[in-house]
Design a protein around this nucleic acid. Structure first.
Length: 557
DNA sequence: GGAAGCACTG
């Protein structure tokens, strides 16, 4: 990298800088070579205080040089970034001015991703730094007036984004609201991103508070901000306040777009008012308000959730008369709900209708059909349908494979299920923990505990971290097959892996041991539980029943 | 800046 960049710059000054760069790229102790012939040995002979003095003296001098060098390399961002990284890797203590220098270069060249990762790295190691991230703003503010405001806005936007991404909302809010006193205002998009993520993480009240205060901080909401506010009020169930947002938009002369209207309709549907949602949708269509097809999906889904299947289906068929063509999402909502309630006849009829209209089906819809069959106890039919869909050339993903593997396992055909895992791998699909868990359960069901264990090991070897469900399935399998000690060992393994056992884990072990006839072991395990909740008692009662210890079951009950 | 499905107990 140094060589190619050498071609770009060839002045004497450049040579001086390159030699400085090389010197620093060697090792963390290298900078002490300036003064000491045998640095390590000499440092060992002086006391810590003196050592710090020596080190600090050179480090201070070098810090200035680093900033100068970075400023000089502004036209060569590749070299500058590389130099900066070398210093970091070699443990050179970089101060806010060095960071400010590289940040200016990244901003100048529009290297947004690199800026994001640099800030993320700073956040991650802020505790080990001898400065605060806010000091970076002070260092940046010392730049040229003309560019500094621009850079401050960009850096605070990037910082808000990074803080939000890692879930550090308080810090993101601080950045957003400290900016006014620094004389600049971040982009509204950063604020929107923050608000939206707050809502996604369930922090609705925080989002609403920010929305209410943002104007005072010089931030002007745009159409998207208002849509997020509508979403927040709808999630809270404050539908009247959601309507107030539309009024506010009118006052501020911001025109609502299709997103805003649909968000409000979705709010009504979420609160069991799909009928009202549909009325509003129709009224808005009549008023020629811009609405897109997504609003129909929202209302159809709403009716499906309320189990008003006739209404949901009517929308799909009536909208065509109004000149709107239903799409795969609307059919998908209906098909999956019909599958869920066991009306496969209706689900398949709608699927045929959809395909006959030239709308291509997809693996999500296929999976809901397969799951519907499975829930109806039609495991063989699941395998047949799967084969048919495959022969039709429809792409079938991990979830589809899983439904079939699960059905085969329930039929006791675990080997056939494992053959599908092999088939997946042959298609370059990487099985996930759900696929592995299904098969581990399948082997356990057949009493093939060692095969289950091997699969568990394979899964870990392939880089998949088992979750609580995987552990529960395996713990249950071990217990049911009488391997009490192995189940307890697995419980310890869970803890060391940082996976917390839950009531289900405990009950899988208790009931499993009882099924295996090891009622004494189950009782000991139950008695040793640190916290017993109602479900724990249920587990032990069920266990007694499984083992025909009816009297003990009743006494405990 | 918005779209759905799969693995553990009852």
């Amino acid at each position: 990298m140094w060589v190619s960049s050498n071609k770009l710059l060839s002045s004497r000054k450049y040579v001086k800088h390159v030699s400085f760069i090389r010197l620093y790229a060697v090792s963390a102790l290298a900078h002490l070579n300036f003064a000491l012939s045998n640095p390590i040995e000499e440092l060992q002979t002086i006391d810590t205080h003196e050592k710090n003095l020596v080190t600090n003296h050179f480090v201070e001098k070098d810090k200035v040089k680093v900033v100068e060098t970075l400023k000089y390399l502004r036209k060569d961002p590749v070299l500058a970034f590389s130099f900066f990284n070398q210093l970091k890797e070699n443990g050179f203590c970089l101060d806010p001015h060095a960071y400010a220098a590289i940040v200016r270069i990244l901003c100048y060249w529009g290297w947004d991703r690199k800026l994001d990762s640099l800030l993320l790295e700073l956040i991650r190691k802020e505790r080990d730094l001898d400065f605060k991230i806010m000091n970076l703003f002070e260092a940046l503010a010392e730049g040229f007036e003309s560019e500094c405001s621009n850079i401050l806005v960009r850096v605070s936007d990037a910082l808000v984004k990074v803080y939000v991404t890692v879930g550090m909302f308080d810090e993101a809010i601080d950045v957003l609201f400290q900016t006014k006193c620094r004389g600049f205002v971040p982009h509204i998009l950063s604020c929107n991103f923050l608000l939206n993520q707050l809502i996604e993480r369930g922090k609705i009240d925080v989002a609403v508070n920010i929305y209410r205060q943002m104007k005072a901080f010089g931030l002007s909401p745009n159409d998207y901000t208002y849509t997020i506010a509508i979403k927040a009020f709808c999630r809270k169930g404050s539908l009247d306040e959601a309507v107030d947002v539309f009024r506010e938009m009118e006052e501020c002369r911001v025109t609502p777009n299709a997103f805003a209207y649909t968000t409000y309709i979705e709010g009504l549907c979420l609160h069991g008012r799909s009928d009202l949602g549909f009325e509003v949708l129709q009224a808005w269509i009549t008023a020629k308000i811009p609405i897109d097809l997504f609003a129909f999906t929202v209302v159809i889904r709403g009716f499906c959730n309320e189990m008003k299947m006739k209404e949901a289906e009517n929308i799909l068929h009536d909208m065509e008369k109004q000149g709107f063509a239903p799409d795969v999402y609307m059919y998908g909502a209906l098909i999956s709900r019909f599958c869920m309630v066991g009306n496969l006849f209706k689900a398949l009829a709608l699927h045929d209708e959809m395909v006959s209209k030239g709308i291509k089906t997809n693996c999500v819809i296929v999976s809901s059909i397969l799951l519907g069959l499975s829930h109806m106890g039609m495991a063989s039919e699941v395998a047949n349908q799967f084969k048919e869909f495959k022969e039709m050339g429809i792409f079938l993903d991990k979830a589809c494979y899983n439904v079939v593997m699960d059905a085969l396992c329930k039929l006791g055909k675990v080997e056939e299920a494992v053959a599908l895992l092999v088939e997946m791998k042959g298609k370059q699909m990487v099985p996930d923990i759900i696929n592995y868990t299904t098969l581990i359960g399948g082997y356990c069901l057949k009493g093939k505990v060692f095969d289950a264990w091997n699969l568990f090991e394979e899964m870990k070897k392939n880089g998949h971290k088992p979750d609580v469900i995987t552990y529960n399935v395996l713990a249950g399998g071990l217990s049911r097959n009488g391997l009490a000690q192995e189940a307890l060992n697995l419980l310890n393994d869970m803890e060391t892996q940082g996976v917390k056992p839950n009531t289900v884990t405990h009950n899988m072990i208790i009931e499993g041991l009882c099924i295996a006839g090891k009622v004494d072991d189950a009782e000991t395990f139950f008695d040793n539980l640190e916290e017993k909740c109602l479900e724990s008692y249920s587990g032990m009662v069920s266990g007694y029943c499984e083992a025909d210890h009816t009297k003990e079951a009743f006494d405990l009950f």
